[in-house]
Nucleic acid binder design. Structure first.
Lengths: 219, 219
DNA sequence: GGCGATATTAACAGGATTGTTAAACAAGTC
DNA sequence: GACTTGTTTAACAATCCTGTTAATATCGCC
């Protein structure tokens, strides 16, 4: 097997040049696929192509290794929110872009939602990680969105909706679209080769749905 | 320990009168809480107050026991869809009632969505159970809904929307509302004692959202 | 009371799983 | 070349988990 340098190589972070990185990559895959309980350290080591003793050498415990993976994934999730708001453009277009980008991010990381939800249900430590990482990001996004919304509402161009509700609706539909894809394809009787088309159609539908809510007449 | 009768007592299905039922009840709780992988047969037996050998005596394998729980839960889920459509009433009111009832069902069975999603991801047998039980029910509901929708669309009282899209939106928001409650409460900074109020508010919001879509002006 | 069928227990077997450890190995330094 | 430091291996220990089995208990029934 390949020898490692003394220090973990931080100059080429993408490849599994070191044993430690190989283990981390393998752990990501195994944990994402099976969750903490069903994933086995032996399987992770096998996938990484090393003895399972190496896993304990670098990460001490399964729990410890998992926590590092978890932290990274929560961070990834947080980043997906901040990248939404970027360039200058008309408000509705910005929303359209934002919803679409969020959808695309999830479509590219389809296992992420279930992974997170599965592990926080009865583990308050992991919920705490979520709170620490996600909360500040989320608050910032909501605040910005609410400000933009208020301006539009003031000018009468969109209906009065709360940023939080809008966000929840959007995230709900996007996450669930990805999360439930296996069931949805069953229930909508979609064949495997039509998967991408189905997703694309659903994405457009969700965007329409969000815009409809914004354009609704004041009741 | 209480002795069982020869035949499982089907006249009083609610109580754990027999060992077999006690095991089944304990299994439901354990499997729903921890999922197949993390649940332990020894823990199930302990919870049921019997030796873990009894578990194997009645259900042979952990897998077998799990499958019976899974089947029952899928059936429960299916029933939650059929009970929606019942009495005669104005269309929009019926929608309102239906969405609310679906939400309430999920709120009463908050672990159900995650339980199902978690177990079908990489198990095609269980997906097959879903298909067999859920598909016919779902198709029936969609068909009925589409017919009712068409009539309303014809008369111009609601905007042209497809039953499938509407259903997906509705189920998405309801399921995700329950599924993500732990995270949502974190992100919306809701205290434990305000949980029910938060849920009720979200329910109303989802109903509004669905109705808004139906009342949208034809573009 | 004795018989037969079912229910229950305790003990065990086999295997998998996490984690440790002692010894071998590689590589740079003096 | 010996020393130091970090890496890797193989073997092991301890525990846990699923499933079996043989012996015992319980019950209905004749």
């Amino acid at each position: 097997m390949n020898k490692t340098t003394r220090q973990v190589d931080t100059t080429t972070p993408q490849a599994d040049t070191t044993t430690q990185q190989a283990i981390m990559s393998a752990a990501e895959i195994e944990f994402m696929e099976k969750g903490f309980a069903a994933a086995k350290t032996t399987a992770i080591a096998r996938r990484a192509g090393v003895t399972h003793a190496m896993l304990h050498y670098y990460y001490r415990t399964k729990e410890n290794l998992f926590n590092q993976v978890f932290q990274a994934k929560i961070q990834l999730l947080a980043d997906s929110f901040t990248t939404i708001l970027g360039r200058e453009m008309p408000f509705l277009e910005k929303i359209e872009q934002g919803v679409g980008a969020h959808f695309d991010f999830l479509a590219a990381n389809p296992r992420l939602p279930l992974f997170v939800l599965r592990e926080i249900v009865d583990n308050s430590d992991r919920r705490e990680v979520c709170r620490e990482v996600l909360l500040p990001v989320f608050k910032g996004v909501i605040e910005k969105l609410q400000k933009a919304l208020n301006a539009e509402i003031e000018s009468g161009s969109v209906a009065p909706v709360s940023a939080m509700d809008m966000m929840l609706n959007m995230v709900s539909m996007n996450v669930f679209a990805i999360l439930s894809l296996p069931v949805a394809m069953l229930l909508a009787e979609v064949k495997e080769e039509d998967r991408d088309r189905f997703l694309e159609r659903r994405k457009r539908q969700i965007i329409e749905q969000v815009l409809t809510q914004l354009k609704a007449e004041k009741r």
